[in-house]
C-alpha cells in the first residue's frame, strides 16, 4: 500500500481484467482510482505495531461441510445457459495457450 500515491498502472490492470479502455477512459479512471487509493492511504497514519494481520475481520474458523453428495444441477438447465454447446459440453472459442 505504501506506493499507492505513486498511482496504479490502470492500463496494466485493465489488461489483467481483460477490459478494453479508451485513452480518455484510462485517464479518467486513473484520476478516480488515485483519489480512492489516496483516501485509503489515510490508514497508514495508524499505529498497527501490536495488531496481528488477518485475512478476515471476524474470528470465525473451520466452516466445514461433510463429504456427502448433494444435488447437482440438471444437465439440460446447465447447457441452457451456454451461449454455444456441443456434445453436452460448453463450446468456447478455440483455446491455444495453456
Amino acid at each position: 500500500m505504501s506506493n499507492a500515491t505513486q498511482g496504479m498502472d490502470v492500463g496494466y490492470v485493465a489488461h489483467l481484467a481483460r477490459l478494453e479502455l479508451t485513452a480518455e477512459e484510462t485517464a479518467l479512471f486513473q484520476g478516480q482510482l488515485d483519489q480512492i487509493l489516496h483516501y485509503v492511504e489515510q490508514l497508514n497514519a495508524l499505529d498497527v505495531a501490536g495488531v496481528e494481520p488477518t485475512a478476515h475481520a471476524i474470528p470465525v474458523y473451520n466452516v466445514f461441510r461433510p463429504d456427502e453428495v448433494g444435488r447437482s444441477l440438471d444437465h439440460d438447465d446447465v447447457i441452457a445457459n451456454a451461449p454455444s454447446a456441443a456434445n453436452g459440453q460448453f463450446r468456447v472459442p478455440k483455446i491455444i495457450d495453456q
Partner: peptide, 20 residues
C-alpha cells in the same frame, strides 16, 4: 464430493452432469 461444493467427484461421468 468436490472441494467447495457437494457435487459428486467421479471420473468418466457424462459431461457437465456433476455441476452446480
Amino acid at each position: 464430493t468436490k472441494m467447495f461444493c457437494s457435487c459428486r467427484h467421479e471420473y468418466g461421468a457424462a459431461p457437465n452432469t456433476h455441476v452446480c
